[in-house]
Design a protein around this nucleic acid. Structure first.
Lengths: 389, 389
DNA sequence: CTGTTAGCGCCTTCAG
DNA sequence: CTGAAGGCGCTAACAG
């Protein structure tokens, strides 16, 4: 910039103005400035330096506690991220994807601590985790998605104790930095939806119900869920859905049993594997409660593999109500995925604007389609599924 | 940082060292520094300032010339982005999504010009567009995905003409900035795959073939493709696939005809709409060439709506070979989507490391499954599809 | 309408 | 092992 200024015999401020405040200099001069800039190969103000000076980056970070490829592979996540991006784009904000590094050597907090962003959105993180603490420690506008309500968060001492003067007393041209951690929460009624799903199955007379759980926490590896593990579920949505299932059970006739497995990843094939294992080890199961439609899709595939007709021999319920689930005739719990993204975006915008938006809790609904039916009669039930070829 | 230094009676350099070079000070002092920092509410070095000083941000921008939500809605894009992210994560690089603003008032170049990034990846942009020029003008390490080979790109004068001294002569501690635009290309054999698909159909005897095109360019709106519009296709993959179809046609028996429509967006429902319109206005069509599996999925749905059995009455071919396409028994053109992402990531890493990776062109293949069959006999063909209810 | 000034927060060489 | 100094590139106030 100085080069350009010198070449024209003007001051750097004038060059800066040529880019940022056209009204501050004559149109002719402005043209000349832009022109020589081009000649000199100067492409305009450096975004980084500008951000430093202005105190804003125009970037919002999304924290995702898993390899980033999962985010793109999961349709529900993609849907959410898409609508979030759309909401933020309206304010010219871009999305920075912050995932924990694949390399286990690397510091999983580094991305969060090192990102130049104006705000942070936590999409997936274990409750009460280091990661979450690192996010909060940045004292940036933060939106927590599908996390326990803020009131339940451990309080964090973040008020800087100023040694003598406010740091920026001599800098009236910068907006006074507000160092309070400003956070807001958006979530859905996870437990409520789960309760509806389990209830529906019990109303249909099912007494032996398999549950395909989403990950219980970061890198758990899947498999049967012991009561011990059930107590330590780290991912809030998983915990809540489980709680919902349990609540329905407790409210219904006693004698109904749940058989829990954890899918290693939220993919159809992991869902299929889980379902297969579960159905073979517990032949009395007549219904499957899946914590996602993706998992349910796998369950459907498993049923087909085992020659179990859905819904006559096996009922299946999903969660999310993805766009493709209607085609599959899947009974499922609907959640307002897109709206959630939009709400999160709006909350962030409000936070950025200095407001403190209230926490939001969005409803869920049971959508009954063709994949659930009354418990098969005992004779049919007695038919033990044939072992795999 | 100064606060912390003052509170401890040490210099700021020492505080900085506490964070960045533990070997430069005693463990005890380091502990004390970190400790008082915590007490004072100092969360560590500001990433922005650090980036400015170091000259690196640890962020790679992905340029996407459409509302960002499209990127997430398109499974092929998601797959690509996922594997790209994974490759980049290995080098602790994060992904910044740079989409053109939804607001048509806003400057579509702003995101590209204003992003603080170490490199740029162009995933979707019209060839020879302003956007592409703006990307190249940044003189950053750049990878062009599915764009015409670099040799065909308009040359850009980007060498800065230094007025007197190299700007950084007095700053030997910073890596000498290399201002040459370093770009590399990764693409697939779009035309080749398309040719195979069209050929397959012609081998099966089809003579009236409908084509469901991806967008021809930014915001075109869809609809029938006139020869005029066909000449001006702005998106390279669309142009190439079209060229491939045409090549097969030219090589085959004369008398075969193509009927072109553009889908407004790459979604199943747009695909269905297109297919419906096409099949109703041109009842002689017995096969559909779709430029994506997503579009093909819509075509399949349209066929069902019209009561046209696939493949007996109507053959359908897709493009991409998505994970779900096998279940649909869709004949399609496979492309190495994940590998493409990985290659792009590697190319970026090489560029960042000062190397100049060669351009890469990945192969495509025809995967024949159940959605294509020989042209129906004349009598069957004469059955005009029933109008919609 | 233009120029001067004073940093934004940090890192790194170099001298002690 | 520690401290002083200079500057990354830019912008906003203020004075002319």
């Amino acid at each position: 910039m100085r080069e350009v200024a010198r070449a024209l015999g003007v001051s750097v401020a004038t060059v800066s103005n040529a880019y940022n405040r056209p009204d501050q200099l004559s149109a002719g001069l402005r043209e000349r400035v832009l022109d020589t800039a081009r000649t000199l190969g100067y492409g305009g103000p450096d975004p980084l330096a500008r951000s430093l000076r202005r105190g804003r980056t125009g970037v919002i970070g999304v924290v995702y506690d898993a390899p980033l490829e999962y985010a793109f592979a999961d349709p529900a996540a993609a849907l959410f991220l898409g609508s979030l991006a759309q909401a933020l784009q309206a304010a010219s904000l871009n999305l920075l994807l912050l995932a924990s590094p694949g390399d286990p050597q690397a510091d999983p907090l580094a991305p969060v601590q090192g990102a130049s962003v104006d705000g942070l959105i936590v999409y997936s993180a274990a409750q009460d985790s280091e990661l979450l603490r690192a996010v909060l420690a940045r004292s940036l506008p933060t939106v927590l998605v599908d996390q326990p309500m803020l009131a339940d968060q451990p309080v964090l001492i973040n008020q800087p104790i100023l040694v003598d003067q406010p740091v920026q007393a001599d800098h009236p041209d910068l907006p006074a930095q507000d160092h309070r951690a400003q956070a807001s929460g958006v979530q859905i009624d996870d437990a409520g939806g789960a309760r509806l799903a389990a209830q529906h199955l019990m109303d249909l007379g099912h007494t032996h119900i398999g549950v395909l759980c989403l990950e219980l926490g970061p890198r758990q590896g899947g498999g049967p869920v012991t009561p011990e593990r059930e107590r330590r579920v780290a991912y809030h949505p998983t915990a809540e859905r489980l709680r919902g299932y349990r609540e329905a059970l407790d409210a219904g006739p006693s004698g109904t049993r749940l058989f829990l497995t954890e899918a290693e990843r939220n993919t159809p094939s992991d869902g299929a594997t889980c379902a297969l294992n579960l159905l073979q080890s517990e032949p009395e199961i007549t219904a499957l409660l899946c914590m996602s439609d993706v998992l349910a899709q796998g369950a459907l595939r498993a049923a087909q593999t085992l020659g179990l007709s859905v819904p006559h021999r096996l009922s299946v319920i999903g969660y999310d109500d993805l766009p493709g689930s209607a085609d599959l005739k899947l009974t499922t719990v609907w959640q307002p995925t897109s709206e959630k993204g939009q709400r999160v975006g709006e909350a962030m915008l409000a936070l950025l604007g200095g407001q403190t938006p209230p926490d939001v809790r969005l409803p869920t609904r049971l959508v009954v389609r063709g994949s659930t039916a009354a418990r098969p009669t005992t004779s049919a039930q007695a038919t033990r599924p044939s072992p795999l070829p």
